[in-house]
């Protein structure tokens, strides 16, 4: 491999297992363009009926949250008990609500 060789672009692959389900991340693939990325993703990730639809997205286009912000972003906010239905008192006579 020469040093001036262009690195091929990295793509993230998402598969919809069947209609009615959302696309789910399966892995990544290298390809120079989007058309070949779909073909390569098909060959690598769906050889045994794993899906009915594929997405390929340039990995560089994905913006990820920083794991260091995990607490700030994903704190379950357990102190906000009024977010849960059990916070509200509804008399039994009202029935299921």
């Amino acid at each position: 491999m020469s040093n001036n060789e262009t690195l091929t672009q990295l793509w993230e692959v998402f598969i919809r297992p069947s209609n009615g389900l959302a696309h789910k991340h399966a892995g990544s693939i290298h390809s120079a363009d989007s058309e070949m990325a779909v073909q390569a993703a098909r060959d690598v990730y769906t050889r045994r009926g794993e899906g009915t639809s594929l997405w390929v997205v340039p990995s560089s286009a994905i913006v990820a949250s920083d794991p260091r912000d995990k607490e700030e972003l994903f704190d379950p906010a357990d102190d906000k008990i009024y977010r849960h239905p059990s916070f509200y008192n509804i008399p039994d006579e009202v029935g299921h609500m």
Binding site: M1, E5, T6, T8, Q9, S31, A32, D33, M36
Partner: peptide
């Protein structure tokens, strides 16, 4: 395999 595939990678990148 790697060396003989070089032109394919180059062509794919040039086309892209």
């Amino acid at each position: 395999a790697w060396d003989e595939g070089a032109w394919v990678r180059e062509a794919a990148n040039a086309f892209a």
